[in-house]
Design a binder for these strands. Structure first.
Lengths: 228, 228
DNA sequence: GCAATAGTGTCTTTTAGACACTATCTG
DNA sequence: CAGATAGTGTCTAAAAGACACTATTGC
């Protein structure tokens, strides 16, 4: 059996990186941290870490560890973005990183008061370590692209929300305005959400109906916005 | 520097797998090979292989090696599908595989006469080794999904093609009929293709204009088919 | 009643589907 | 000219956008 394994010295470094995105102050933000160690000590970078082959059941488990350690969250939505590899992306060795995108409601993040862990506007990014600028650019392209025809942006919202909140979250995700009536009509007609029977509690204006995602139903929606 | 590396014994096996898809006999086919060695000796599997850290510049380079070795092709379209990992998917060790989808015109494949390398109808698959049934299912879902709003299916065609060929390739990829006039209108109006000035040479009927993909232009197209 | 946001009705514009028609080739 | 496929014109149906209107709340 041993002769079936690749020689140990031929195996690359194996890590997981996380693009943790949220909406704060009406804009998309990504979580960055300043690296405490070489390589790239002092540079901003995406949170990440080694796969622990003795404890992780897969890259998903490694991601959950990182989300907990770096952002203090668990049970949030994430998906694989892509895998980045090569001899030069990490100065230590030939390396492979499985990058993920996580979308989370701002309230759930527990960042503490560490000044080296920050939420940064995605349109005002500092230089990043490794190939993280590239990973982040592809992550944003995915989020914006997928937002146009899926329920992905709902991952930024709490379990219940108003149609106005849903509308705003789609606009921020896609980076463009969406006509209000068409949006509401489309959302209702694809049956993506259902009423909770409750109302939002805001002062000084008319309360709105609260909705939740309809489980096991249509997650596919077209033409929220018209791509060129 | 050495203390920065993960211990060598903590690194997983790192491989690349290829879902090589083509259209033959008017149906989608995938390239499978029978494994000559353990594990899963004698089972059908997707072609794949180890990353060679001393020669590969990345997983893409490993894919190109595999495409050449197993299918006799180079310079064809491929993209990453996803990365699969865990302690149990390969009986030899904790392993990671970066799966890719390659789309190729049938004529370009050089399979030789090895009975252990075959093109199989994607709707009549045998049991597969490792987690390859799962990988293949996700690959087909990606191809069908992405075919509905992108120019992906053109990767099955030669450099120049008629609108009738383009139409047929979209129908086969999506697994549904597409109205002919709407399809032609849509294709022309998004400016995805341009005339070559040449005509197809077929006997016994009217020749059709030949088109090619317009480079650097619109690759995004909506609503070839209406998903539920 | 006023400010503010929630929610609706309806006209216009755009886009997709249906389908009949004309065009151009070979034998 | 018959058979076959290429390519077009045009009506209809469905969906998106524009926008004015009504509804419900706190103050």
């Amino acid at each position: 059996m041993t002769q079936d394994k690749t020689p140990q010295e031929a195996r690359p470094i194996m890590t997981v990186d996380a693009v943790i995105v949220t909406i704060a102050d009406d804009t998309l933000k990504v979580l960055l941290h300043r690296r405490p160690r070489e390589p790239f000590q002092g540079s901003w970078a995406l949170p990440g870490g080694y796969i622990h082959v003795n404890e992780d059941s897969g890259t998903d488990a490694a991601m959950e560890r990182i989300l907990q350690e770096k952002a203090g969250v668990s049970d949030i939505y994430f998906e694989q973005l892509a895998t980045y590899s090569g001899p030069d992306r990490d100065p230590r060795d030939w390396s492979v990183s499985v990058a993920h995108i996580a979308l989370v409601q701002e309230d759930l993040l527990s960042l503490g008061d560490d000044p080296d862990v920050v939420l940064t506007d995605v349109d005002a990014l500092p230089p990043l370590a490794f190939d993280h600028e590239n990973i982040l650019a592809e992550a944003l392209a995915r989020i914006r692209g997928k937002g146009a025809y899926s329920s992905l942006p709902t991952a930024f919202l709490p379990k219940t929300f108003t149609l106005a909140q849903l509308h705003r979250v789609y606009e921020i995700t896609l980076g463009e305005t969406i006509e209000r009536v068409s949006f509401r009509r489309k959302i209702m007609e694809v049956g993506m959400v259902e009423e909770t029977g409750q109302k939002s509690t805001v002062m000084s204006r008319r309360p709105a109906k609260l909705f939740r995602m309809k489980v096991g139903s249509q997650t596919y929606v077209r033409n929220f916005a018209t791509a060129g």
